[in-house]
């Protein structure tokens, strides 16, 4: 009797230990459930970034929140015509195109969220979820919560935060799962759409901040190209780089200079605030400004028409 009881206990202990290990190691790692299908696996060897390079990869290159906040801050009215229609999402077929579209629609979602246009948000999050599923990252997109928030028109701040967090998780996962190129392509899509929205606003507003924002894309584009060029052997990336380099070439005529100042530390409403006092001066001719607007709009049109 005692031996039998002893045996049962031994089995219980071993079972509990094994199940405990399983749940610990995988509780937050959704990636373990995933198998990347052949349809989105790369046929040609794609350069894999070394750990150091990944660590060095620039963060926050293109953020829909900052672009949308800038536009809204200038009191530019909402315009749905600026956005890529959700119907256009059907044109994106390869994983490269879908990643690019994910960036474009992600930026549009940021614009819609900023203007609290929750009635349009649902269509966009549905498209984003489908695109994310197609490249096997849909599990990081909190679709049900976003849909609930948008449907009930409740807590719109959470809508922005959860959208951002979803994209951040997708970005982290792609970098960690040997598919950093797709992460870079999503960032490129965000940049293209953010710049495109800025050009559309530039056509209806003469605000000097819009002009400066388009000019300072020179700095951002340099870093974006650095990331994208790591994958230039990929045919889709090579084609994209050829297109985006045409925009970059126009920025050679944009001059950016800086005046350096000492940062100040103050306390405001109980929060420590560090204030930069450097000055940024962006100079370009009207002709260059117009050429940049045209070239970004052409780039976006080429990428969204097949």
């Amino acid at each position: 009797m005692s031996r039998r009881l002893l045996y049962i206990l031994l089995v219980l202990v071993v079972t509990a230990s094994v199940s405990s290990c399983k749940s610990c190691s995988n509780s937050d790692d959704l990636s373990q459930d995933l198998v990347v299908p052949d349809s989105i696996a790369f046929n040609d060897p794609v350069p894999v970034l070394g750990e150091t390079v990944i660590e060095e990869m620039m963060q926050n290159i293109a953020s829909p929140v900052e672009t949308a906040a800038l536009i809204k801050g200038l009191k530019v009215p909402f315009n749905k015509d600026f956005l890529l229609t959700t119907k256009a999402s059907e044109k994106f077929n390869t994983s490269f195109e879908k990643s690019l579209a994910l960036g474009i629609y992600g930026c549009d979602l940021g614009y819609l969220n900023m203007y609290e246009k929750s009635s349009f948000v649902i269509d966009y999050i549905q498209v984003i979820k489908r695109l994310a599923d197609d490249i096997q990252v849909g599990q990081f997109f909190d679709f049900s919560t976003l849909k609930r928030l948008a449907t009930n028109n409740e807590n719109l701040d959470s809508l922005v935060t959860i959208s951002q967090q979803s994209f951040s998780r997708i970005d982290n996962y792609l970098r960690e799962s040997n598919r950093p190129m797709l992460s870079a392509v999503i960032v490129a899509g965000l940049w293209v759409e953010g710049s495109y929205l800025t050009t559309r606003v530039a056509q209806v507003s003469n605000h000097k901040r819009i002009r400066e924002t388009l000019g300072e894309q020179k700095t951002i584009l340099i870093f974006l190209l650095k990331v994208l060029k790591v994958y230039e052997k990929d045919p889709s990336m090579a084609k994209f780089l050829t297109d985006i380099e045409k925009v970059k070439a126009l920025y050679d005529d944009v001059k950016i200079t800086y005046e350096v100042g000492e940062p100040e530390m103050v306390e405001e409403d109980g929060v420590i605030v560090f204030k930069q006092t450097d000055k940024q001066i962006v100079e370009m001719s009207d002709e260059t400004y117009q050429k940049i607007i045209d070239s970004i709009q052409k780039l976006r049109a080429d990428l969204t028409k097949f």
Binding site: E216, I220, F223, Y258, E268, V271, I272, Q276, K279, Q280
Partner: peptide, 14 residues
């Protein structure tokens, strides 16, 4: 130690 600090940026860049 401050768990939160704010930073006012006046220059776009890395």
């Amino acid at each position: 130690d401050y768990p939160t600090i704010d930073w006012v940026c006046t220059k776009t860049g890395a």
